Computed example of a mutant assay.
Amino acid sequence: MSTQVPPIHSTAAAPMLELRGVHTHIGAYHILHGVDLTVPRGQLTMLLGRNGAGKTTTLRTIMGLWQASQGRVLLGGEDITRLPTPAIARQSVAYVPENMGIFADLSVKENLLLAARQARHAGQMDEERLQWIFGLFPAVQKFWNHPAGKLSGGQKQMVAVARAIVEPRDLLIIDEPSKGLAPAIIHKMIAAFEQLKAAGVTILLVEQNLAFAKRLGDSVAVMDNGRVVHAGRMADLAADTDLQQSLLGLAL
């Protein structure tokens, strides 16, 4: 006989995001095996782990792109487990996938305009916010009218993040933003995330660049074989080389 799970009501004290016992199957494959994850409000939470640990599947499950087969996903204490992806996005959540999801045939301006729901043309976009984004990512302004597909990998990543923040968001979920980027562009990306943190945005970040993680992370969760096997403060993990070797097989 199944037990009725009591409803959870949103409160100011609730974490921004919480996964409770989440399982995800993709076809015949059981990828997530009871993921428990807490993302505190106003912090940047790093999600680390070896390749194939289940990090990207976790993000896609949060966003409803893959459906959890068991467990609950809570946003501000409210259950979003069964919501479709557009409904989750409307809860002030932005997601930047590993492949960036850029519309290659559209200009940079048109890519951002698609994400600016309150604007029907570029003149209706929030000019003050655009100038702030241009300050974070000068390449976005420089290539404003260029086809996004013609940009370099680093420039596309900047456009992807800019598109995610063209409107204020409570939660950003970003999959490996520094992957394949030159060090100079990584530094710009770090500066952008530091500003977003300072503005009170909650961020969940999958990252393989451990220097990046150490610099930005407030809290950390480490995944292995479809489970969270460690959670705590990023600073504590960064200071414990034995724990790093045990969890990740390498040192920060």
Rank of each mutant, 00 (worst) to 15 (best):
L172W: 02
L151I: 05
N209K: 11
L37D: 00
Q124M: 03
D36A: 02
G123I: 02
L74I: 14
H9K: 06
L48E: 01
I185R: 15
H121E: 09
N145I: 03
A211D: 11
Q157H: 10
L250W: 07
L151M: 01
D224M: 12
L151N: 00
L216Q: 02
P183K: 09
G52S: 10
A87D: 13
M16D: 06
H9N: 09
S10I: 04
A122G: 03
M223N: 04
G71S: 03
A122N: 05
I133H: 02
T81A: 06
Q208R: 02
L74K: 03
A115W: 02
V5D: 05
T3M: 14
V201K: 04
Q118S: 10
Q91W: 01
S10E: 11
R72K: 12
Q131N: 13
M234Q: 13
R72W: 13
L32E: 04
K109C: 12
Q155T: 05
T38M: 13
S246D: 15
R233L: 15
R82Y: 06
I102R: 11
Q155E: 10
L205V: 15
L75W: 10
Q195F: 08
V161L: 14
R72F: 14
L216E: 08
E207G: 07
A251C: 12
L151R: 06
I133E: 00
L48S: 01
W66H: 12
G149M: 09
I190M: 14
A53G: 05
F212A: 14
D242R: 11
D175L: 04
I8Y: 12
